[in-house]
Simulated assay, not measured.
Amino acid sequence: MTPRFTPGQLHVHSGLNDMVATARALRAVGRKIALVPTMGALHDGHRQLMRTARRLPGCVLATSIFVNSLQFGPNEDYDRYPRPLDDDLKVCEEERVELVFTPSREEMYPGGPEITIDPGPLGGELEGASRPGHFAGVLTVVAKLFTIIRPDYAVFGEKDYQQLTLIRKLERDLNLDVRIIGVPVVRDADGLARSSRNAYLSDDQRSAAVTLSGALAAGARVSAGGAEVVLESARAVLDKEPLVDVDYLELRGADLGPAPERGEARLLVAARVGTTRLIDNTAVFLGQGED
């Protein structure tokens, strides 16, 4: 039996079969679906993703809330990752989300999984070098969500730029027929990129964490000078903050291949502030100054 769907109301499905049936019924009557996949602990960055998806014409706005165990390493924060489901559902209501999928770990991965998706060489670089297996977990859950919900559009934030790049490759290489939309990084007034993990930071750590966006801005300001100048300027800012333990600072092409001599590139940083690992990135335009 297909669950009843009333346009304009919030419908929450924890069961995979109910979610599949509702999505199939919507497609049968010609409705498109715009999906915002999340791990919950929703903040203004997620709200911006939802607002972007909501502006897509003729679409039902859907969100998934699932803390994906596959993308956490053995010493990472899966068990303590925030799960404020009631608060998250209030955010969904406020943003006029119509369909929310909240599966359990057992519902998504019964007995396994035994098969995951290989992210290719890029999956072992940058975040993948520091978090082995992370992107196999990300791509596996995204592929499952696309298979279950069959969205026409999927909206992701550019803060996780490597993730966005790999999801675009996933959609292309597996012919998933989903239009992937990236949304620019959402920042607080002081420049810190919005992240669910910001809640772990003490006041002093949060002040120190702003150094990441400051370093990226410093690099972007001197982009006319080329790659070496960009990296030197960004590194100089990071080196002034003792509470920031840098994992990597790299300049890559827009597709995360080698950086070009001129044109669009991407400056990426990852660092620990206390026990909290943060990432950030920005576009730079080498040999052309700032956009």
Rank of each mutant, 00 (worst) to 15 (best):
126 L>M: 13
241 E>I: 05
221 R>C: 02
203 D>I: 07
171 E>G: 09
283 A>F: 11
150 R>Q: 15
59 C>Y: 05
184 P>H: 04
236 A>N: 12
78 Y>C: 13
211 T>G: 07
57 P>K: 06
201 L>K: 00
253 G>A: 03
224 A>Y: 04
265 A>S: 02
85 L>T: 07
194 R>L: 15
58 G>R: 11
254 A>P: 09
70 L>C: 10
206 R>A: 01
106 E>Y: 09
206 R>L: 10
148 I>M: 06
289 G>T: 13
187 R>W: 10
123 G>C: 10
136 A>V: 02
61 L>P: 00
140 T>M: 05
245 D>Y: 10
133 G>M: 06
41 A>Q: 01
187 R>L: 03
229 V>W: 02
203 D>N: 03
106 E>D: 14
55 R>Q: 08
39 M>D: 08
189 A>K: 09
100 V>Y: 00
269 V>L: 06
135 F>A: 10
2 T>Y: 08
54 R>I: 13
51 R>L: 07
257 G>P: 00
201 L>Y: 01
291 D>S: 15
179 R>W: 08
104 S>D: 03
84 P>A: 08
58 G>V: 15
252 R>V: 14
18 D>F: 05
73 G>S: 14
163 Q>I: 04
161 Y>T: 12
269 V>I: 15
104 S>Q: 08
137 G>V: 02
136 A>F: 00
102 T>P: 06
121 P>Q: 04
54 R>V: 12
69 S>Q: 11
93 E>S: 15
235 R>M: 07
167 I>W: 07
279 I>M: 01
135 F>D: 02
160 D>Q: 09
133 G>K: 13
79 D>N: 13
231 L>R: 03
42 L>P: 06
216 L>V: 04
181 I>H: 00
43 H>E: 07
141 V>K: 00
173 D>T: 04
244 V>A: 05
66 F>V: 06
27 R>N: 02
61 L>M: 03
144 K>D: 13
215 A>L: 06
51 R>A: 06
226 G>T: 08
63 T>H: 00
280 D>C: 08
19 M>H: 06
58 G>Y: 12
209 A>S: 07
238 L>A: 06
147 T>G: 03
267 L>P: 06
225 G>R: 10
196 S>I: 00
239 D>S: 15
17 N>L: 09
17 N>C: 01
17 N>I: 14
168 R>C: 11
101 F>D: 03
58 G>W: 13
82 P>Q: 03
96 R>W: 12
98 E>Y: 08
22 T>L: 09
119 P>G: 04
44 D>Q: 12
53 A>L: 14
96 R>T: 10
199 A>E: 09
43 H>W: 00
101 F>K: 04
150 R>L: 05
32 K>P: 08
236 A>E: 10
174 L>W: 08
177 D>N: 04
61 L>Y: 06
162 Q>R: 12
146 F>A: 01
134 H>F: 03
242 P>E: 14
188 D>Y: 07
267 L>E: 03
43 H>M: 15
138 V>Q: 02
288 Q>W: 04
218 A>S: 14
275 T>P: 11
146 F>E: 05
5 F>P: 11
34 A>N: 02
139 L>R: 01
138 V>L: 07
197 R>D: 04
